[in-house]
Design a protein around this nucleic acid. Structure first.
Length: 272
DNA sequence: AGTGCGACCCGAACGC
DNA sequence: TGCGTTCGGGTCGCAC
């Protein structure tokens, strides 16, 4: 699942491949993927060019001449660069063809990803972008901020780490890893999180996301970020997808239980 | 306001 | 072997 580190990897990879190439055609094979008007989407993208690629949390923000293309990969969204003459595959839903006869193709097995085209001045008022919390590693992500968000919350801390309006960019993999590093039991209620635990979340999340970005993210299941780029952070996972294996710290058996319907991995001894 | 849950999708895993 | 069923997961929208 692409989380903040995987999305950053996609951004870095695509920036080397698609900037400043003139788009000559846009094909949309699954219209529900586009949140804005489909006809307008095609007309505006045609003859346009990607000037830069930014990111907020898990959102990719493609900068065009007068617009931004917002793209969320959700579970399995991927971008591939291909020659235009290559056969269109089953799960390729949006295709941008450049003048040099190469394509940027959006591939999404589950069709969960979304794209939205907005005018540049609409970025700061865009609901999806505006409601994102702070990212791991940003100086505004402090223990005081987290404690304020966690107070009055009876939800498990694991669930709160997945709330994009609190911390922007964590998904299931890194929420599990951050709680292990911070030595916090994932079932603990938000309102019971202590100052020290909040500080640990701030430090652990920054450290883990920085390291994951350096390694190009985590490759899990069939997920590769884009253009065949494979992340290497999966070699450093301490708990995620490791149920029934030994904890690297204390040798206890890693458990897998559902919290609010989401698969949660933790060490019962290190995360009391 | 906070919380819970179905819907959106379809390949993989599972049951028989 | 093959068919049918269940499950998972990020986010939204709606119900309570």
């Amino acid at each position: 699942m692409p989380e903040i580190a995987e999305v950053e990897t996609v951004r870095n990879t695509l920036k080397k491949q698609i900037l400043n190439k003139r788009i000559k055609n846009v094909k949309i094979l699954y219209e529900r993927m586009i949140e804005s008007n489909v006809q307008e989407f095609k007309e505006i993208l045609k003859k346009n060019q990607f000037i830069d690629i930014k990111r907020r949390g898990k959102w990719l923000i493609f900068e065009l001449e007068n617009h931004y293309l917002l793209s969320h990969l959700r579970m399995e969204g991927k971008f591939f660069l291909k020659n235009s003459n290559e056969k269109i595959e089953k799960h390729e839903h949006v295709i941008f063809t450049f003048q040099d006869e190469t394509d940027l193709r959006y591939h999404d097995t589950r069709k969960f990803g979304r794209m939205n085209l907005i005018k540049k001045e609409e970025l700061k008022t865009n609901i999806a972008i505006k409601k994102q919390g702070y990212e791991p590693g940003e100086k505004e992500l402090t223990s005081e901020y987290l404690l304020e968000k966690f107070k009055n919350k009876s939800l498990a801390i694991k669930t709160l780490l997945l709330d994009q309006t609190i911390i922007s960019g964590l998904g299931n993999i890194y929420a599990n890893e951050v709680l292990f590093a911070a030595k916090i039991n994932p079932f603990k209620k938000g309102s019971d999180i202590t100052k020290i635990e909040a500080e640990n979340i701030v430090e652990s999340s920054a450290k883990i996301i920085k390291r994951a970005m350096e390694l190009g993210g985590t490759t899990i299941k069939s997920y590769t970020s884009s253009l065949g780029v494979t992340g290497r952070f999966q070699n450093e996972l301490m708990v995620h997808k490791r149920s029934k294996e030994e904890c690297n710290v204390c040798k206890s058996i890693i458990l897998n239980e559902k919290i609010n319907g989401r698969s949660t991995y933790y060490c019962p001894k290190c995360q009391k």
